[in-house]
Nucleic acid binder design. Structure first.
Lengths: 139, 139
DNA sequence: CGGTATCCAAGAAGATACTG
DNA sequence: CAGTATCTTCTTGGATACCG
């Protein structure tokens, strides 16, 4: 699976000297597992989702983490929050165009993860095994 | 910048019911800022890098975090560690083929971050501003 | 040079209880 | 339903010192 794509190395966030470079803060938005899961779920659903619907779709997430994740995504303009003033309240979360772009990236990560999970699991086992034998081999 | 690409939704990590799904652990490899930065730097350099060379290229990283990050990447088979038994010791880190694939993903993330940093920064400011006025508007 | 070991502080994250 | 608030736990990460 050769994913050779056009690159733009000039000025990428990796090269910046300043620790507090704004583009880094943007990279770090996606460097968060719940952000990836939420974006991936919303993208897959391809429709606005309610809070508890999202919660059920994300095994292991707590209410606090979901709220927190959705707030930062809303703040960054990746997710739009729409409140219907009904009783009981209805709140829907949807990807913005920007969020949909980010969702494409999470999809690529998910696909990559899925297609290499066995390879990586095998590598982990081999590494952990080598740690058990190598120290003894030094004696 | 429309990054419309072929999708494969079937069986993606977002849908799995089990909390401890292996593919999730692979997604979470990339959900780490130092992992993204290290992969991005190694990919950009396109050559093996020494420990302190990598360190200098990553402003803000501590020795501990760099060591830790490189270990997990080596364990997962994304980075190859080569030791030259010289004095002083020389250790080189290079991307494996698998790591290079992951590097492509980090490049996409970096490109996306760079091209939308202003948009996101603006969104953040607007959100923070709305928090100052809205609560007062309720009175 | 390229680490490891240890200690410690700060923040992330979980559990629980309560509310419009 | 969709949160907020609080408390506690626990991991992450930084600082420092030392080693082959």
């Amino acid at each position: 699976m050769d994913t050779t794509l056009a690159s733009s190395d000039a000025g990428s966030p990796w090269t910046v000297p300043a620790v507090e470079c704004p583009s880094r803060t943007v990279v770090e938005v996606l460097a968060n597992k719940w952000v990836l899961y939420v974006l991936g779920t919303l993208r897959q659903e391809a429709a606005p989702m309610r809070f508890n619907q999202l919660r059920r779709a994300l095994p292991g997430i707590t209410q606090k983490m979901l709220t927190q994740t959705l707030r930062t995504l809303e703040r960054d303009g990746l997710v739009a929050r729409k409140v219907y003033p009904t009783v009981p309240p209805r709140v829907e979360y949807a990807l913005t165009p920007l969020g949909h772009e980010a969702g494409q990236l999470t999809m690529l990560i998910g696909d990559w993860a899925l297609s290499h999970v066995n390879q990586i699991l095998t590598s982990r086992e081999a590494f952990d095994e080598s740690l058990k034998s190598e120290p003894a081999a030094l004696n």
